[in-house]
Simulated scan of single mutants.
Amino acid sequence: MIKEVIVVEGRDDTVAIKRAVEADTIETGGSAIGEVVLRKIALAQERRGIIILTDPDHAGERIRKIVAAKVPGCKHAFITEDEATRRGDIGVENASPEAIRRALGRVHSESTEAAPQIDFEDLIEAGLIVHPAAASRRRIMGELLHIGYCNGKQFHKRLQIFCISREEFLAAWQQLENKGV
């Protein structure tokens, strides 16, 4: 049984989680998260902790940001777009039990206390911003670092929030370069 409560978008996501692990969930009901749901999430965070596992799309990222802003100290799990896509539909409900277990096995905690180890110059040098293939390179780096896909500014913020070390960043960058992207 996972101690933390997992925040998901809907009922189908809960079904997928329960196929993969024994855990409790709170469903946001989509991206229009109401105050009642946010209060439930805050109470769960206070009592057991929260892991946010939303779809790897724009709506999922919006939900993740809203919950994280309103409920400090959340943990985050990410599944890749490939793992969450079936017949053109993207969602946690499409991920295999193994993909969900992998995501929950590499949960990241938020931290605002760590000094930044990676700056924008590093992102430029790695071709993650101001590069013709920056978006695809960030997608792969997000998968390698298990922090999900996002724009350059948000990617930099996630590196800081999840305390990605310079060594982790450089190792992922090397893997990216080995893929030839």
Score class of each variant (00 low, 15 high):
A84N: 06
V181D: 06
I50C: 03
G30H: 02
A23V: 01
P72F: 07
C150W: 03
I124G: 06
P116V: 11
I118L: 04
R102I: 13
R64S: 06
D57C: 11
E113N: 14
G180S: 08
V15M: 10
A99G: 09
K153N: 14
I2E: 10
E125L: 13
I41S: 01
Y149L: 11
L104S: 04
G34T: 14
A135E: 14
I51K: 01
G60K: 01
R48G: 02
C74H: 03
R48S: 11
W173C: 13
L123W: 01
C74G: 04
G30V: 00
G60D: 03
G152I: 01
R64T: 07
E27R: 12
C74E: 03
I6N: 01
R19P: 12
E35G: 11
S96A: 08
A133H: 15
T112E: 13
N178D: 15
L159W: 00
K40T: 05
F155A: 00
A84D: 08
P97K: 05
G142Y: 00
K65D: 14
K179D: 08
V71P: 00
G88I: 14
G34D: 14
E46L: 13
R158F: 08
S109K: 11
V21L: 08
N178M: 15
I161Y: 02
R11Q: 14
V36H: 12
Q117M: 10
G10L: 05
I124W: 09
C74T: 15
T28H: 08
S165H: 09
P72Q: 07
A114D: 13
P116I: 11
G29Q: 07
I90G: 01
P72G: 08
D89I: 13
W173I: 09
I41N: 00
V181N: 07
G30D: 02
P56G: 05
G60S: 06
R101F: 05
A77S: 09
S111P: 05
D122Y: 04
L104I: 07
S165T: 15
A133G: 06
V67R: 02
A16E: 01
G152N: 06
L128K: 01
G30N: 05
G88F: 08
I41K: 00
A99F: 06
R101N: 05
Q175E: 15
R158K: 12
G60A: 11
T85A: 03
D119G: 08
L123N: 00
T25N: 05
M1Y: 09
L144P: 07
K65L: 12
A69F: 11
H146W: 12
E125K: 15
E121V: 15
A95P: 06
L170R: 14
R39M: 11
A68E: 12
S111L: 06
D55P: 00
D13A: 06
R102Q: 13
G127K: 06
A135W: 03
V36Y: 13
